[in-house]
Amino acid sequence: MNGRRLALALTMGDPAGIGPDLALAIWQNRAVLGVPPFLMIADPEMLAERADLLGLKVALIESSPEQAAAHFATALPVMPVALAKTAIPGTPDEANAEAIIESIRLGVELTTASRTRALVTNPIAKSVLYASGFGFPGHTEYLAHLAAETAGHPLTPVMLLAGPHLRVAPVTIHIPLNQVPRALTTSAIIETGRIMARDLASRFGLTAPRIAVSGLNPHAGEDGALGTEDAAVITPAITELQTLGINAFGPLPADTMFHAEARETYDAAICMYHDQALIPAKTLGFHDSVNVTLGLPFIRTSPDHGTAFSLSGKSEARADSLIAALKLAAKMANTEVEISTLQALRGA
């Protein structure tokens, strides 16, 4: 089947959170919003109950991935994953952890097999999954694990926050701040830059992306007066990336690289740790930034917010970020197809 005619795979997320609410509301307003077709991997009974609670008129239909796009105009296509217990909005239940994880696993399986165009994941509560024995720091690491099982070798995921005003990726992610200097290595920065440059070209259509690299310390170390990592760890990585033909530059002081004029000089930025990247990303695009996982053999996006249990079942949550995640996933899939076609025509 033509990849452009396939639906996106949308996971359930935590059923006690806002993921199902947003998916249902988006489908009801699909024509106005112009969202691409998606297949919801979730419990149909939970979706029906939530739609009733929210006063939404959503027709549901169990569907294969291949038929989901055709069904989307008249009904929300669903691949069933049964919950162990009834989902109560705002009250997460560890009993449903297995179904939450299975929804993610199926989404990866379908997308890897090219039965869906790309994977979009709804928010999960990691603490709920940890209680069930989930052994990964978060979504990103679990997706990389599943992808590595299929690929047969380890993969390095890179978390990119993509918004209307900024694309930025941290080198280190879900670790305590006091562990960052030990975890930060020249090779990790090089790998992040290499993956970013490759995927910006193949999935965003930026053939020669400009990549700004932040320092770790205030003022990028100020020539060693405020720390040695910038010169000893980060600068050699930038030099190697340049040797590889990647237009990377820095290290730049993180406090001056995110204002409007500075952002005009690069297409994406690399930061050294989680908050250094996510604070500017969420400040500049809190409602419409998208979490994109680079470095995987499939496209994955996610809304840049959590489960928001306190808003679940109340029609109060904003759908902007999930809408953006769906649209960006489809756009990246289209770009990848166009580049692949162009390469084939050139004999690449």
Rank of each mutant, 00 (worst) to 15 (best):
D14K: 10
D14P: 01
P15E: 04
G17A: 05
I18P: 00
L24N: 02
A25R: 15
W27Q: 00
Q28D: 10
N29D: 13
V32T: 15
P36Q: 01
P37H: 06
F38D: 01
F38H: 04
D43W: 02
D43A: 04
E45L: 14
E45Y: 13
M46Q: 15
E49M: 10
L53C: 13
L54K: 02
G55L: 03
L56T: 03
V58N: 15
A59W: 04
E66A: 13
A69V: 00
H71C: 11
H71I: 08
A73S: 14
L76K: 03
P77K: 05
A82M: 12
A82D: 08
A82F: 11
L83Y: 07
L83W: 07
A84R: 14
T91E: 11
T91R: 11
E94I: 13
E94C: 13
E94H: 12
A95V: 10
N96G: 13
N96A: 01
N96V: 07
I101W: 07
I101L: 09
I104T: 04
I104M: 15
G107H: 01
V108E: 08
V108K: 06
E109Q: 13
T111D: 06
T111G: 11
T112A: 14
T116W: 03
L119M: 04
L119I: 02
A125W: 07
H139D: 06
T140Q: 02
H145P: 06
A147R: 05
P154L: 03
L155Q: 09
L161T: 10
A162M: 07
R167S: 02
A169Q: 08
I173K: 14
P176S: 14
P176L: 05
L177K: 13
R182P: 09
T185Q: 01
T186Q: 08
A188S: 15
I190R: 03
G193A: 13
R203A: 12
F204K: 06
G205A: 04
L206Y: 12
A208Y: 14
V213F: 02
S214F: 10
N217L: 00
N217I: 00
P218T: 05
A220S: 10
A225F: 12
V233Q: 05
L241Y: 07
L244K: 01
L244P: 02
L252M: 09
P253K: 07
M257S: 03
M257H: 05
E264S: 10
D267H: 13
A269W: 07
C271L: 07
H274R: 06
P280L: 04
V290C: 06
V292H: 00
L294S: 03
D304A: 01
T307W: 08
L311C: 12
L311Q: 15
S312M: 09
G313D: 07
A317H: 06
A319P: 11
I323W: 05
L326T: 08
L328Y: 01
K331C: 09
K331P: 10
N334L: 12
T335R: 00
I339W: 03
T341F: 11
G347T: 02
A348P: 10
